[in-house]
Nucleic acid binder design. Structure first.
Lengths: 195, 195
DNA sequence: ATAGGCATACCAACCGGTCGGCATTGACTT
DNA sequence: AAGTCAATGCCGACCGGTTGGTATGCCTAT
């Protein structure tokens, strides 16, 4: 192993940062490779040295979105609190996490690559998160603490829809912290679920 | 004025239908003009006879999204019922309308063309809809029928986030009708707003 | 010497869009 | 009724520019 230059200095990082910005604002397909390298101050040779394709950059961005969120949900559930407290914690956690990765969330929201295996794996993980979330609601209904009138599906989609749209309106410099916003949403939904 | 052939037979319609499908599934930028005309069974000449650009097709699709929804909201408000009934009617109406234009909604959700005047006009209309919606909540809070704890912003984004995500999960062949889903969402949100 | 980081030059394919032309048509003339 | 003409719907070859991706080799640190 002969080390020649910094193997992973910050070039790779800059390419990822710039790509994230462009994908989030213009969309993946509308962003050219030339545009990425120009803005990142590198050349195409560098980009294709670190990534084997433009798609691979996208997939690495995808990876950050639901990377740790599923295990975070499972950890909260494993703590074994009552459904109200469990669901509240999950919602605050989800809102906070989404606020921290607004750009990635925007890229994910635009979708695309419906046939690629990476995208499908992503969707599968997302689907499992939804399922875990809805199970908490069902547990609460079975325990009699949530009304059976509201369906877990509608309740969950109002939460996921909320977080999926955050990238269009949430600004870090705003008055409310992500945790505040999460608490407010939890108040609204939990009050709605307990009739 | 010499009339020669059907001025607007169905060719134009087919181009729009196919474009809507492709834009909704692959995205605007990722869809080629060639792809549209091939799938529509027409030629590029025909397409550029009816539309002056690929963008114009997109803008015509945009036009359907919030075309009548703003005046629908204003009409409901003008009926002057109590805030609870007003908000419920608005939510059911919004959910039903969104269910009827799932594809258009998907195209709109992907966004793009952030600088084009058409897109900005669209956003402006959408912004005014949001404002009208939130005003109903504020009126309810002033009247004391809604709790002042929940912010109109969070409440509205859970509804708009819900509708904006409908295109990812709503299927017309499903068990619940759009009106049913709308009522369920209205139950959840209205219960949450009244503490 | 050697091996890897990266620049440069380059490619075929495809992009959105154009343009000259042709076939079809109804209105008008005869 | 037949012929002429202009307008139109539409075709498809073609355009310059851009696309994602590659081949080659310089340069530098070991």
């Amino acid at each position: 192993m002969a080390r020649t230059k910094d193997p992973d200095p910050e070039v790779r990082r800059r390419i990822l940062d710039v790509s994230l910005d462009l994908f989030a604002t213009k969309g993946f397909a509308a962003t050219g490779v030339q545009e990425i390298v120009t803005k990142a101050g590198v050349t195409k040779g560098a980009l294709y040295h670190y990534f084997k394709s433009k798609d691979e950059i996208l997939f690495e961005i995808y990876g950050r979105v639901f990377g740790h969120e599923l295990e975070s949900l499972q950890r909260i559930v494993a703590e074994g609190h009552d459904p109200v407290r469990t669901l509240r914690t999950i919602i605050v956690d989800l809102v906070s996490h989404t606020a921290a990765i607004t750009k990635e969330s925007a890229v994910f929201a635009r979708g695309g690559h419906a046939d690629s295996p990476h995208w499908q794996a992503m969707q599968e993980q997302w689907r499992r998160y939804q399922e875990g979330f809805r199970q908490v609601i069902r547990d609460g209904q079975d325990a009699g603490v949530f009304s059976s009138k509201a369906s877990p599906e509608v309740a969950s989609w109002s939460v996921f829809g909320f977080t999926n749209s955050m990238h269009t309106w949430y600004r870090p410099e705003g008055r409310k912290s992500p945790a505040d916003i999460g608490e407010e949403l939890a108040d609204l939904i939990l009050t709605g679920l307990q009739s």
